[in-house]
Amino acid sequence: MFEVMRRPNARENHPKHDARRRLHDALTQDRVDLGPEAMDTLRQELLAVIAKYMDVAEGFQEFEVRRVEGWPALVTSLRVRERQQELNLR
């Protein structure tokens, strides 16, 4: 039983995860010619802009440059809270 519970964490430490994580960053950089620092700034600025209009619950669930239909696309997913106030007014 302990084996079952310990395994998932152990898997994250496998060498292939290093390769995958490093490649993920390198490919993002290659695809849009944007370094990790610039990506981070972009992430923060986007978050700030969206927070002006929506109640952002948490940080980005997903934020990556992926190939979609043959072209690099910035794919993001952000969790926002429902507009409780408006619902209460009704």
Partner: peptide
């Protein structure tokens, strides 16, 4: 090596390259 997690497998590579 893939089974041990020491080498990237098909799923890893597909998630990176999307082909």
């Amino acid at each position: 090596m893939v089974r041990r997690g020491d080498m990237m497998g098909q799923d890893d590579i597909v998630s990176l390259l999307s082909v």
